[in-house]
Amino acid sequence: MQPFEYANPTTVKEAVGLLGNKWDEAAVLAGGTDLISLMKDYVYSPKRLVNIKNIKELGGIRADKAGLRIGAAATIDELAESPLVAKNFPSLAQAARGVTSPQIRNMGTVGGDLCQRPRCWYYRDGQGLLASPGGRSLVTNGENKYHAILGNGGPAKFVSASSLGPALIALGATLTLQSSSGSRKVAADKFFVTPSAEGSREIALLPNELLTEILVPMGGTKNATYEVRQKEALDWPLATASVALKMSGSTVSSARVVLGHVAPMPWAATQADQFLAGKSLTEAVAEDAAKAALSNATPLSQNAYKVQLARVAVKRALMAAAGARG
């Protein structure tokens, strides 16, 4: 790890004042589960860390009439254990519980989950986020079994590592980003982006902004998350689907199906959304919706199997949601 300066603000105002205009000037330290490893591997060496765990206003999970308010520094475990979350948003609780290490759940924060960097092994080996030294993609020509099968037409081939992103997008969450010049609200599905140049990030957050709160509207949806993960112990999912269904009787009036770990960002499977609208949810319908969700998949040389896994995730998430409370 390179040396750095450590700051420990107690208010959001102080915190954003400590951030920089470039990513290498300052980084937000929340749970540290990703950041510290990136720094140990010299993949990222910010000159200042701004600890946000002592900012009270960033913690906690509560509900008001606008919906469920999750502080960015609330831990994954708080989310996994929250009765409020379990009652209204099983998809979010399931996604949180998919982080099967108690240590990571205790340390990692909701904001950190959304802002964590991809696990692409070329990126982690110092080859850059796009892993294209000299303009040639190491991913395309190399070991890509864990890489993207959707949204991979550009230079970005990694997959978004966020566990909670798909659920939050499906649930229509809004994120609050604060800088010293003010705050802005970004819909969860606009928070994630696919970078096209080395040096840009896979989230819409700017270096001088702090993610402060996630607001999940009480939508009255049936929702569920299904992760395809090889190990029971701590392991990254190979594919995830999170779905939120607005029902009218036994008919789906509208659906949001969002895939995780299959694209450089959580992938809104709008074809599936359209397919599901107006249908009664049966296993056959779920299966067809899953096919629709993956209809645009463009697997790389070694990851066609992930298309199948993502389909299974969609189907199982839909069936789970159908059985879940609204």
Partner: peptide
Amino acid sequence: TGRVLNADMEFYKLAGIG
């Protein structure tokens, strides 16, 4: 690159207790 891509304990996968 001629390098080990999973020289870590995350993608060099070992069974856990479950």
